[in-house]
Amino acid sequence: MDQDFSGKVAVVTGGGSGIGEACARLLAARGAHVLVADRDLGGAERVAGDIGGAARAFEVDVADPQACEAMVRAAVEAFGRLDVAVNNAGIGGPQQPTGDYPLDGWASVIAVNLSGVFYCMRAELPAMLESGGGSIVNMASILGTVGFAQSVAYVAAKHGVVGMTKTAAVEYAQRGIRVNSVGPGFIDTPLLAAADPQILAGIGALHPIGRLGRAAEVAELVAFLASDRASNTTGSYLLSDGGYTAL
C-alpha cells in the first residue's frame, strides 16, 4: 500500500517548479492537502491549479521570516492544521573561487538556502505541535557532505541545513515531530536548464548510474520520510544521488 496522506496538510516551499513541484504533486496524489509556496507566484498557481481543490498557491520569500510565518498561517487557515513540511526552496548562486566570491552572492545564498530553512522550521514547528506532531523534510544536497569548487556559499548553506536538521530532530523527537534531510545529486530541474548540454552530459557521467537524477525520484524519498512508514527515522540525511558520493 502506498503512503496515505489522507487528512494531512503539507507545505512545500519552492513548489512551483523542479523538485518542489514533484513533491507537491506526489503528496497531493497520495491524499494530502498542499500549500504550494514559491517566490514565483505564477509557478505556484500553475501547480496548485493542476492539483485542484486539494491545493492552494502562496507567494513566499523564505529569506523573510515574517513571510514564512504568514505561509504557515495560510496553510492552517486554509486546511485547519499542519502535518508535513518540505523546505525545498533554494537558489544556486555565483560560481567563483572562495577568495573572489562576491559578498552579495554569499549573502543571498545564505539568506535563502540556510536562513530560509531555519525561518520555515521556526514557523512550522509550533504549528505541528498544535496539530499533535508531524514530519519536516529539509532539502539539502550532496553538497551537504562534500565540497564543490567555486560554490562556497551553496556548500556552506547545505552543510548547515544538515546540521540544523539533526539539531531540530533531537529537540523534537519526543514531541511527535520527525525532522530529516534529503541530499539530491545533480537533478534535471530548471536550475540546470540553462547549462550547456555537453556540460550536463559530463555532470551526468559523474554519477555511477550514468545520468542526472529526476525530480520525481527525489520526491519519492521525500514522501517516504514524510510518511508514517518512516516512523523510526529522524535526524537522518538520506541521499538520492545516483551513487555520486559513493565514488
Rank of each mutant, 00 (worst) to 15 (best):
Q3R: 12
D4Q: 06
G7E: 05
G7D: 07
V9G: 13
V9K: 12
V12K: 00
T13L: 10
S17E: 15
I19G: 12
I19S: 13
L27C: 06
A32L: 12
V34E: 01
R39G: 14
A44N: 11
V47A: 09
A48Q: 09
A48F: 11
A48E: 10
G52A: 05
G53A: 13
A54S: 14
A55T: 13
A57K: 00
F58A: 11
V60F: 09
V60Y: 10
V60H: 03
C68L: 05
M71D: 08
V72H: 02
R73A: 15
A78Y: 10
D83S: 00
N87P: 01
N88S: 00
G90Y: 02
G92K: 12
T98G: 09
G99Y: 00
D100C: 09
D100W: 07
V109L: 10
I110W: 07
A111H: 00
N113T: 09
L114W: 00
G116M: 14
G116H: 05
M121Y: 08
A123F: 13
E124I: 11
L129F: 09
G132N: 04
G134M: 14
G134R: 12
S135W: 06
S135E: 03
I136Q: 12
A140E: 05
T145H: 13
G147Q: 05
F148V: 11
Q150F: 08
G163I: 07
G163N: 04
T165M: 03
A169S: 13
E171K: 14
G176T: 00
I177H: 03
R178C: 03
G183Y: 01
P184D: 12
G185Q: 04
L192A: 00
L192N: 05
L192T: 01
A193M: 09
D196M: 01
L200W: 01
A201P: 10
G202S: 15
I203E: 10
I209V: 15
G210Y: 12
G210D: 02
R211S: 01
G213R: 05
E220P: 10
E220Y: 04
V222R: 01
A226P: 04
S227Y: 12
R229T: 04
N232S: 14
L238D: 13
G242Q: 09
T245C: 11
